[in-house]
Design a protein around this nucleic acid. Structure first.
Lengths: 198, 198
DNA sequence: TGGTTTCGGTACGATCCCGTAGCGAAACCA
DNA sequence: TGGTTTCGCTACGGGATCGTACCGAAACCA
C-alpha cells in the first residue's frame, strides 16, 4: 500500500540520503571540490550510483547539502560584560575555524560561489545567520548603555569576525588566543561607555 | 649553434610560456579550478599540448604561475596624513577586489591551498608582501608621532584589510566607499596621537 | 500477507583528460 | 648559411566520470 500520510518519507530514502551527505563531506575534506564525484560518493557511501541519481540532480546539489549539513548553528551566551561574552564567542569561532568540518569545506564553497549563484547565496545566508547572534548581543549592550549609542554594529561585527577568517583562509597565519583577545579589546574598548566617560 | 650566453633563453620558450599563462588565467576565471586542464590550456592558448608539457610539470604548476602573474605589486603613497594615505590604499584594494583578475583567481587558490602546500605558501607570501607596504606606512606614522607608540601594527593591518576580503569572498556583501571610509576611521581614530591628547 | 516503493548491482556508450612518442617544419643564433 | 633548438601536429592507450537502462531482491506499510 502507498502510505496514507501525505508528508511521510520512506525511511530508506532518509538513510541513503544521510549516508550520501556524510560521504560527500568526507570526500570534500580529503580531495576538495575535485574529489567530489558522484562515482566516488557511491563508492565511499555504499549507496548505489543509481540511487544517488534518484535523490540528487547531481554533483552540485550534493555539494550544497554537504555544506548546509556541516554548518552548525552558532550560539552566544549573554551572561557577563559585552567584552567578555564577545571574546568567548570569538575564541570559539577561532577554534571552529581550526578544527571543524565546516572550516575545511568552506574553501570549496568559496571557490564554487564564484561561479554558482546558489552556492553564493548559501554562503551569504550562512554568514548572515552566524553574524546575527553577535549583532543581537551588541545591540543589547547598546540598549543597556554598555556601548555608546553611536555604535555601528554591522561595522563592529565585521571588524571582529573578519580577521579570523582572513588569517585562516587567505593569509594562512595561525591565530592565537592572545591575538583574538587583543582584537576584541582593540575593537570594543573605544566603544565602551565607561571608557569614554573616564 | 648553441647560444654562448649561459643564461640566455630562447624567445620561443618565453612566447609560448606567456601564452600558456594568459590562457590559464582566462580558463580559471571562467571555469575555476575545474576549468584548468592541460588540454583546455592547449586549445585556448594555441600552444601544443606537447610544448606545454615541455615547460610545465602539469596542471598545478600552471595554476601557481597564473596566480603569481596576476598578483601585481601593491603601492602606497605617503604624502598626506596617515588616515588619508591608508584610506586611499584601502579604497584601491576594495576596487581591486571588485575588478581584478587576481580577485577572481583567489578563490581557486584558497581552495587549492587547503590541500597543496606550495599553493598555501604562495598565498601566505603574496599576502605578506601586500601587507608589508601598509605596515611600513603605519610604522613611519608611529615614528613621526602621528600614531601612539603602543600601536600594534600587525593587529591594525589585520583590522584594516580583513573586512574587505571577508565581504568579498566569504559573506559576499558589497563594500561601499563609505564602508571603507568608516572602517579606516574606526580603526585608526583611537590610535591618533592628537585624538588621545584632546 | 501482499502490493508498493526503494534499493543494489551491472552494464553500457559517450565524453573528457592524462601523459608520451614520433616526425617534419619553422625559428633561432653564431 | 648551417647546425641546433623549439615548435606544432597527430596519434595513441589508459583511466575516470558521466548519466541512463534494466533487473531482481529487499524493505516498507496498511
Amino acid at each position: 500500500m502507498a502510505p496514507l500520510d501525505p508528508d511521510h518519507v520512506d525511511p530508506r530514502r532518509i538513510r541513503s540520503r544521510q549516508r550520501v551527505i556524510a560521504a560527500a563531506v568526507e570526500l570534500l575534506r580529503q580531495g576538495g571540490s575535485a574529489g567530489l564525484t558522484v562515482e566516488a560518493v557511491a563508492a565511499c557511501s555504499g549507496v548505489a550510483k543509481t540511487t544517488i541519481y534518484r535523490q540528487f540532480t547531481g554533483r552540485d546539489e550534493i555539494h550544497i547539502e554537504a555544506l548546509e549539513c556541516c554548518a552548525g548553528p552558532p550560539a552566544i551566551e549573554s551572561h557577563g560584560a559585552v567584552l567578555h561574552d564577545v571574546e568567548v564567542w570569538m575564541q570559539r569561532l577561532a577554534v571552529a575555524l581550526r578544527e571543524t568540518d565546516f572550516a575545511e569545506l568552506l574553501p570549496t564553497a568559496i571557490d564554487a560561489a564564484e561561479r554558482r549563484p546558489e552556492m553564493a547565496t548559501l554562503l551569504a545566508v550562512l554568514g548572515a545567520q552566524r553574524r546575527m547572534v553577535l549583532i543581537a548581543r551588541l545591540r543589547s549592550a547598546v540598549r543597556r548603555g554598555e556601548l555608546i549609542a553611536t555604535t555601528d554594529t554591522d561595522l563592529v561585527v565585521s571588524q571582529l569576525v573578519s580577521p579570523l577568517f582572513y588569517r585562516r583562509f587567505i593569509s594562512r597565519q595561525t591565530t592565537s588566543r592572545v591575538f583574538v583577545s587583543n582584537l576584541a579589546r582593540a575593537v570594543l574598548n573605544p566603544l565602551l561607555a565607561q571608557h569614554c566617560a573616564s
